[in-house]
Simulated assay, not measured.
Amino acid sequence: MREIFDNYFAFATTVFMGLFAIVNPISSIPVFLELTSNMDKPQRRNIATKSVLIAFCIIAVFSVAGKLIFHVFGITLAALRVTGGILVFVIGYEMVRGKDEEKNNPKLGDQPVKADHGISAAITPLAMPLLAGPGTITTAMSYSAAKDVYHLAIVMGVYALICYITYLLFLAGNKIVNVIGTNVMMVITKMMGLILAVIGVQMLALGVMELFKL
């Protein structure tokens, strides 16, 4: 029983580190603040709630239906791991280099989002691609596709926890930026990028070993 618990705990830790690094909710705080700059506190809370719920639903669909998608399209888990590893590595590499900073943080302040149109901001860019982008979907599917229902439940529970953490970070966004500053946030983003790059290499290596039966 202890060994089973340790295996599940180790798996949950791995999933949390992988998904948290690729979601990187801290780096999404400036985007959320700028999108909701003209909204009052209840409206910001509403957008934060909708964005994390939509993101969770997206990941849930792909995690639960992963095996079905593999069967319909004839995809193997090894191929997914190779592709996902490359994708995750590229995302992490770009985060470390910082060349996608302007792309991930567009000048939304020039055209502020109106409160009555906030649902569109909750869907994109907050839910997709910031919280449930291609890298997150691929990683969640890779973790859940080859496991039993308990491992699938762990993946869903871990991502739900990350969504809740993201929700709290969004609501406390102004305080966080004032306390740690933009430079520290940049350092955190680069550290997350390094972790992502390592995870990508590991996924790629596992996929290659499975493809060629090494």
Rank of each mutant, 00 (worst) to 15 (best):
I195H: 03
Y93K: 07
L87K: 08
L214N: 01
I26L: 09
K67P: 14
A12Q: 00
I59F: 09
I162P: 02
K190M: 13
G135D: 09
I69H: 11
I119V: 12
S63R: 07
A205F: 10
K213D: 06
K190P: 14
C163N: 11
A122T: 01
P42A: 01
F62A: 12
L77P: 06
A10L: 08
N7A: 08
A197S: 11
E3F: 01
G193P: 00
F20K: 01
V184A: 03
L33I: 02
T136I: 01
V23N: 01
R45Q: 09
L35C: 05
N38P: 14
K99G: 10
M185W: 09
L68N: 12
V31C: 04
M186W: 10
I29D: 02
M1N: 10
S144Y: 06
F5K: 13
T14K: 02
V187Q: 13
L131M: 02
L204E: 08
R45T: 02
L168H: 13
M17I: 13
R81S: 15
V201C: 12
G92F: 10
K67I: 15
I137G: 04
R81F: 12
M209A: 05
L206G: 10
V61A: 15
L77A: 07
R44C: 07
K147A: 04
G74V: 01
F11M: 00
S142H: 00
R45Y: 07
F5P: 12
A65L: 14
I119H: 03
F73D: 11
P30V: 04
V113Q: 08
K114R: 11
I165F: 00
I180Q: 14
S142C: 08
L53M: 06
A205W: 11
A60C: 04
S120A: 15
Y150G: 14
G66A: 00
I180S: 10
I69Y: 15
I59L: 07
Q202K: 13
S37K: 15
E210M: 12
F16N: 06
P106D: 06
V88F: 10
Y159T: 06
E34G: 15
I154T: 00
V155E: 11
A78C: 04
L130G: 06
N46D: 14
T49A: 15
H71G: 13
M1C: 03
I195T: 00
M156V: 02
D148G: 12
L206K: 15
T124V: 05
A140P: 13
I188M: 08
T124E: 05
D100I: 14
F70A: 14
Y159R: 08
M128V: 14
S51D: 03
C163I: 05
M17G: 00
G66M: 04
Y8N: 07
G135K: 05
K41W: 02
Y143G: 06
L161Q: 02
T166L: 05
F170A: 04
I123G: 03
Y159Q: 05
E34K: 13
T166F: 01
M39E: 06
V113N: 00
L19G: 09
